[in-house]
Every structure is written in C-alpha cells, then in structure tokens.
Amino acid sequence: MQYTKEQILEVLDTVKDPEIPVLSLVDLGVITELIISDTNVVSVTITPTFSGCPAMDTMKKQLEEALLAKGIEHTPVKVSFETPWSSDLLTEKGRAAIKKFGLAPPPMLGNHQPDIDILEQIACPHCDSMNTEMKSMFGPTLCRSLHYCHNCLQAFEQFKPLG
C-alpha cells in the first residue's frame, strides 16, 4: 500500500525538538521536503533553525528511528539550507505548545528582520502582559532570549524570532 504524506507526517510528528520536548519537528517547521517515491521509499529533508544548532544530528537520527520503528523504508534524512528556516514556519499548534512549556512564542515577522522594537514587545507567557523587558537577546540555547515581566514579576524566555 502506497503511503500518503499525511501518514508519514503523523509518524514524524512523534519526534520532538530535543531542546523543547513538547514541540514536534513537524510543528517546529524544520521539515522542508517530504517525498514518497513510486516504490514507497520515503525521503525527508530538514533545515537547521540556527546554523550552530547542536541538535541537528540528534533530530536526524530520531526521525530515521521513528520511520524505522514503523517499518517504513527511507533514505538517510538530508540536511539542507536550500529552504531556510524562519520562526514564521512554526505552526499554530507549535506556538501553543511553546507557550504551554513556559516560553513566549516568537512574533510573526513577515518580510522583516528582528529589531530592538520587536524584541522589546513580547507578551509574558504566564500572564499575557505586555509590560515586559528584554534582559538579553541571548539565552540558554541559541533559539531563546531572556525577558522579565513587570506585571507578574517573573523572568521568562522567548523562542526568538528569526527571519
């Protein structure tokens, strides 16, 4: 029986971001190509969120393991910069998962690049207040920045916007 893209995506959806374990790689938006050949062999291409992301090899391995566990024949997962990742590629489900995890989801950028004004206007993931302040644009992982909420008096992190 020929697989459908939906079936394969369902399998890939079980693989989570190693640094944000509530977020699937599908919802993260790093799966940039999914091809099912006539002979039912699956080829997956992923792209890094940040070039220096140390989790790429782990992601690759876990995607291959998930396919293998379901007995799905596949080629090695390819890493490519052809379609660059942008934080706008996070799905709605992914954004909700990030927020539930305690991180502020990134604002939508459109064609813009992040600027100080954008980074300072972040809603607190705990109380939704906009009365927040950026403490550092670099955090515990490449994809997070540090913020403080003056309303609920809590520190929080943001999943950084990247264009």
Binding site: F50, S51, G52, F81, E82, Q113, P114, K160, L162, G163
Partner: peptide, 12 residues
C-alpha cells in the same frame, strides 16, 4: 543560500 540563513543570525 548560506548567506540568507546567516543574515538573521548575524543581525542579532
């Protein structure tokens, strides 16, 4: 392709 990727990172 790499430049398009790096640009946003260097922006930070």
């Amino acid at each position: 392709q790499l430049a398009r990727k790096f640009y946003g990172e260097i922006k930070y």
